[in-house]
Amino acid sequence: MEKNLGLKSVHHIAIICSDYERSKTFYVDKLGLKVIREVYREERDSYKLDLALNDQYVIELFSFPSPPQRPSFPEARGLRHLAFSVDDIEMAVKNLQAKGIKTEIIRVDEFTDKRFTFFEDPDGLPLELYEV
């Protein structure tokens, strides 16, 4: 008999950035995530920034010296993108664009009939807005 692992939710997503201050500004000032904790780990020459969305811990932002580039196009194996749910996609897109963040056109998911769009973080990591 198989045992259930007892998974309850996604605890966090870890992101490694190439420019810590630029990514911190993007996720905190532009996307509005809240800083829970920021630590500099001298032995690794690395920052670790814990971020929350609606007071729920969701993202660990790391810096490391000279991280390799992430293959993105054509799509590579691994995490494809990170999606954020929104109530009003048009308002969210307008807010992103007002902050200088380019978005793709709003599309409709053919299976759910929900609207979505994509944009990128400073390192080209694909991010999605998905209207719920």
Rank of each mutant, 00 (worst) to 15 (best):
M1D: 09
M1K: 11
E2M: 15
K3D: 00
N4P: 00
L5T: 07
L7N: 05
L7W: 14
L7Y: 15
K8Q: 15
S9G: 08
S9I: 04
V10L: 15
I13N: 09
I13H: 10
A14K: 07
I16G: 06
C17Y: 01
C17G: 04
S18F: 06
S18P: 01
D19P: 03
D19C: 07
Y20S: 01
R22K: 13
R22F: 00
S23W: 04
K24W: 00
L31F: 05
L31H: 06
L33P: 03
L33K: 06
K34V: 15
I36P: 00
I36N: 09
R37W: 11
E38H: 07
V39K: 15
V39C: 08
Y40C: 04
E43T: 13
R44I: 04
R44D: 06
D45S: 13
Y47F: 15
D50K: 04
L51T: 03
A52G: 08
A52W: 11
L53N: 02
D55V: 09
Q56D: 09
Q56E: 12
Y57R: 08
Y57K: 09
Y57I: 11
I59E: 05
E60M: 02
L61R: 03
F64Y: 15
P67V: 09
R70V: 08
R70Y: 08
P71G: 08
F73L: 10
F73H: 11
F73K: 03
P74Y: 03
P74T: 00
E75I: 15
E75K: 14
A76I: 04
G78Q: 10
G78A: 13
R80N: 14
R80Q: 11
H81M: 07
L82F: 12
L82H: 02
A83K: 09
F84C: 02
S85T: 13
S85R: 14
D88E: 12
M91E: 06
N95R: 12
L96I: 01
L96G: 00
L96D: 02
Q97W: 07
Q97K: 13
K99C: 07
K99M: 10
K102W: 05
K102R: 10
K102M: 12
T103P: 03
I105Y: 03
V108C: 14
E110H: 12
E110Q: 13
F111Q: 12
T112N: 04
D113H: 11
R115F: 07
F116G: 01
F116S: 02
F118H: 09
F118K: 02
F119S: 02
L125W: 09
L125G: 05
L127R: 04
Y130D: 06
Y130A: 03
Y130R: 08
E131W: 04
E131A: 10
V132Y: 13
V132E: 02
